[in-house]
Amino acid sequence: MKLHITNETSRLKSVVLGVANSNGGEPDLEEAYDPKSIKHIKEGTYPKEKDMVEEMDAVASILKKYNVEVFRPQIIKDYNQIFSRDIGFVIDDKFVFANILPDREKEIKAIDFVIKTLDDDNKIRLPEHCHIEGGDVMPHGDYILVGTYRGEDYSDFITARTNVEAVDELQKLFPHKTVKSFNLRKSNTDPKANALHLDCCFQPVGDKFAIIHKNGFLEEEEYNWLVDLYGKDQVFEIDAQDMYDMNSNIFSISEKVVISDAYFKRLNAWLTSKGILVETVDYREIAKQEGLLRCSTLPLIRE
């Protein structure tokens, strides 16, 4: 397979979509990795496997409707494999293995049948001290946009997934690009004040638009840099509730077509007004784990 990813919105040709089958049921509180999952465990509203399988199958159907090649991970018994974005990412023709939480290392082995088709020269493993997850990484032409957390208390946050060492390593690996990092707001306890990844508070869409949540960024000048990149009139601003609902975590099939949650009425109307076709699914159960459509997809080839 010849990988090719240079941005978030070009026509999608090939993707890994996670699976919810044999999900392992509701985790114990101490096994949860984000405040939103913790909230639903405590409230007895944690999602059921059957509902999540249906939601993901609906996404697979839409992708196939647009002739996208869809790979699904091999199913590991009693194991959460929904969020394939976390386990790796593609920049240009390189597959970068994410250094993720140790408990989740099995997930990458479940797509080994895809990785084996790649040339060894196009596989990159970062040094062990570099922590990174795919939800924090967005190729954007000559830029690589990366969410991080720069606080000295990084190790105190289960929600801090990409460190500055990984940002620096990406710049060394891709010297022809500009790696631009963003210091994100983190919370172990408040899902409305936690930008788990960059795609939880920002996402490009179409050919010149973006979705953004200002309070997801700890540095106002970094938020302003993104707004200036697109132009204020081209940016759809979301609030803390919208971020909690995962409005910025939709997924582009092309510059003209996106998959979005049917629940996002205001966002979907805005996208439609910009000439973007919105294919809707119900992803409310998946959302309870603080991830949505971008989180559950790992693009391999875009035109």
Rank of each mutant, 00 (worst) to 15 (best):
E279L: 11
N21W: 12
V164G: 09
K39V: 03
L298S: 00
D92C: 08
I111Q: 06
L293T: 10
V96L: 05
Y263F: 04
K42Y: 01
F113W: 12
V16E: 04
T272E: 14
L271E: 10
N188K: 02
A269S: 11
L145W: 13
C130Y: 13
E133T: 02
E49T: 07
L101W: 06
A58S: 15
S296C: 13
M56H: 05
E54M: 13
E222T: 14
C201Y: 09
T159L: 09
E152S: 12
S181R: 09
D228H: 08
R125I: 12
K106E: 13
K48N: 10
L184G: 05
R85M: 02
I211F: 07
P27I: 12
S155M: 01
A240N: 14
P175T: 10
N99V: 06
I144M: 06
K172W: 08
D242L: 10
L29W: 03
N67K: 14
L101N: 11
D199T: 00
Y143G: 00
K116G: 05
Y223G: 15
P204I: 05
I259G: 06
V146T: 14
N163H: 11
D156M: 03
I76N: 08
G134S: 01
I108D: 03
Q289C: 03
Q234F: 07
P35D: 09
I87C: 09
P127G: 11
H140S: 13
L293S: 03
I100T: 03
D153S: 07
H197R: 07
L184M: 02
K94F: 04
I238E: 01
A166C: 15
P127R: 15
Y66H: 10
L226Q: 13
A98F: 06
K116D: 12
T117A: 00
E69C: 11
F113Y: 15
W225S: 13
L300S: 04
M246R: 06
I100S: 07
I108G: 02
A240C: 00
R104D: 02
V164E: 14
V278E: 08
C130S: 15
E221S: 14
E222V: 12
K36W: 00
W270T: 01
E54L: 15
S252F: 05
I286G: 06
P175D: 02
I211N: 06
E107L: 01
W225D: 11
F95I: 02
L101V: 09
F89L: 08
E219T: 15
K208L: 01
L292I: 04
A32V: 15
G206Y: 11
M138G: 11
T280I: 12
I108S: 05
G141D: 08
W270E: 00
V205T: 02
Q203E: 12
H213A: 09
V167E: 11
Y230P: 00
G151Q: 01
E105F: 13
